[in-house]
Amino acid sequence: MEARERIAFALFKTDYPPQMRADIQMDQLGQIRTEFGSVTLTADLTIDWNEKRTEYLLKADAALSEMDAIVAERRGA
């Protein structure tokens, strides 16, 4: 998986509560169930990722562009 998609997926995971983030892996997408006290949250991450992938790839592009600018500034300083 390229850096751009890894960054996008990391951003995508922030949509979910901290208790779920550790269990979300790109190579194991599908339904995930998490208990929150007496409530069980079920999410189909494959559908969610497919719907939001483009949005998060654009955010990853912006992050990578900014990182390139930071590196360029520091090399020039």
Rank of each mutant, 00 (worst) to 15 (best):
M1T: 14
E2I: 08
E2L: 08
A3N: 10
A3W: 03
A3F: 04
A3T: 11
R4Q: 09
E5W: 04
E5F: 06
R6C: 05
R6K: 14
I7D: 01
I7W: 01
A8H: 00
A8M: 00
F9W: 05
F12L: 01
T14E: 15
D15F: 01
Y16S: 01
P17A: 12
P17T: 04
P17I: 07
P17L: 08
Q19I: 11
Q19C: 05
Q19M: 10
M20V: 09
R21K: 07
A22N: 13
A22M: 08
D23Q: 12
D23V: 01
D23L: 11
I24M: 00
I24S: 00
Q25C: 05
Q28K: 15
Q28R: 15
Q28C: 12
Q28D: 10
L29D: 11
Q31H: 13
Q31F: 15
R33W: 07
E35R: 15
G37F: 11
G37V: 08
V39F: 13
V39K: 12
V39I: 15
T40I: 14
L41Y: 09
L41M: 14
L41F: 06
L41E: 09
D44M: 03
D44G: 07
L45H: 03
D48K: 00
D48E: 09
D48V: 00
W49E: 00
N50P: 00
E51N: 15
E51R: 15
K52V: 03
T54I: 09
T54S: 12
Y56G: 00
L58Y: 08
K59E: 12
K59N: 05
K59V: 04
A60K: 01
A62Y: 09
A62M: 12
A62C: 05
A63H: 04
E66Q: 15
M67T: 11
M67I: 12
D68H: 08
D68M: 07
D68N: 08
A69R: 14
I70S: 08
V71S: 12
V71T: 08
E73M: 10
E73I: 04
R74T: 02
R74M: 12
